[in-house]
């Protein structure tokens, strides 16, 4: 049975890789871009779900960590000439103005810088719970943004960075998304994952069971910041420009929407919802752009997409709190309908 499942997973994986390869060769750049964004949002949603869903820490700092990742990766991958052109108000400090490194190490460093900042932020804020934690992480995200606006000689301030090399391909985004899914599934099914869920269920009981709350929370938070940094970096090197207005609370809101829609505490849900929301985000662009139907000219209505998304979030949370998946996960047993009777249901 176990081997059969591995076989199914292997076949699906190969089919998916074939699909990606086919897409890369046949889809137009616009559709490819959406596909790439889907992979990025999968990573971001899993990052947020790790803390919000599995550990029960309501964090709203994703946008801030994405900004850190995106700026770090942009500064590491842009050519010195591009940097000199971008920083015309105030030159970029040494040694950043000289450095240019390949994408992979830049990505890893972006994740690490974001993780370090996440770790430092976690120290004070993880003493807080519930709403307080939410507002404090949101606050940190805003502070990071204000710092980015003001640290002209590192971030180019409000002007942002332009001309970032477009390194993010579908292989990068989905390759890393699949790796993230794999690691997250393992982690969540491991003893550490159980400890995190125990903390979510009942902190006091978890602590009395010998779980060091602070250590586990801060590790989850740091991993989440790492992933958000990677996601931000991938996004920055896809759209080729970053500026402080991109990293407002609205960005965190979109990822929160994915997590809630998919099911708070479900990896499968996050993956499905990430794809749906990303596609929807692009599909609904239509309602925001000007349209001419026959003699009728409708000007573009900006904000309409967010109206739809906020309504969607409210409907889910008011009428369908479980989202798509609740806390359940996909398993091949669904196909054979044997789930409960199976010895290895949990963790397989």
């Amino acid at each position: 049975m176990w081997n059969k499942k591995n076989l199914y997973t292997g076949i699906s994986l190969i089919l998916f890789i074939i699909f990606i390869y086919w897409a890369d060769n046949n889809l137009d750049p616009y559709k490819m871009r959406i596909l790439i964004l889907c992979g990025i949002y999968v990573i971001l949603a899993l990052s947020l779900n790790l803390v919000n869903g599995f550990t029960g820490l309501f964090s709203l700092g994703t946008a801030g960590f994405m900004a850190v990742g995106a700026y770090t990766c942009a500064l590491l991958t842009m050519s010195p000439e591009m940097k000199e052109m971008a920083f015309f108000l105030e030159p970029l400090i040494w040694p950043l103005n000289q450095i240019q490194i390949p994408f992979l190490p830049a990505l890893i460093i972006s994740g690490l810088v974001s993780a370090v900042i996440g770790f430092l932020i976690a120290f004070p804020v993880l003493r807080l719970k519930g709403d307080y934690l939410a507002i404090a992480t949101l606050g940190f995200s805003e502070i990071l943004r204000v710092v980015i606006i003001n640290a002209q000689s590192i971030t180019n301030g409000a002007l942002g960075l332009k001309g970032i090399p477009k390194y993010t391909t579908v292989y990068w985004s989905w390759g890393l998304a699949l790796l993230t899914i794999y690691l997250m599934v393992n982690l969540i099914n491991s003893s550490y994952g159980r400890a995190l869920r125990a903390i979510r269920e009942d902190e006091t009981a978890a602590q009395v069971m010998g779980i060091n709350l602070f250590y586990h929370k801060i590790t989850a938070f740091t991993i989440s910041a790492f992933l958000a940094g990677i996601g931000g970096a991938l996004q920055g090197n896809l759209i080729r420009t970053v500026d402080p207005t991109m990293y407002v609370f609205q960005l965190t809101f979109q990822i929160l929407l994915i997590v809630v829609l998919g099911g708070i505490g479900s990896i499968t849900g996050s993956v499905i919802a990430a794809v749906i929301i990303t596609v929807l985000m692009e599909a609904l662009r239509v309602v925001e752009s000007p349209m001419t139907i026959g003699p009728l000219h409708i000007p573009g209505i900006s904000g309409m997409r967010m109206v739809v998304f906020s309504l969607l979030l409210m409907v889910v949370i008011l009428f369908y709190q479980q989202g798509f998946m609740g806390q359940r996960e996909f398993s091949w047993d669904w196909l054979s309908r044997k789930g409960r009777d199976n010895e290895q249901t949990i963790g397989s």
């Binding site: 400890a195 869920r197 125990a198």
Partner: peptide, 10 residues
């Protein structure tokens, strides 16, 4: 089973 497994995490 997970309740018991959590007890072994330490």
């Amino acid at each position: 089973i997970e309740n018991v497994l959590v007890g072994q995490h330490l």
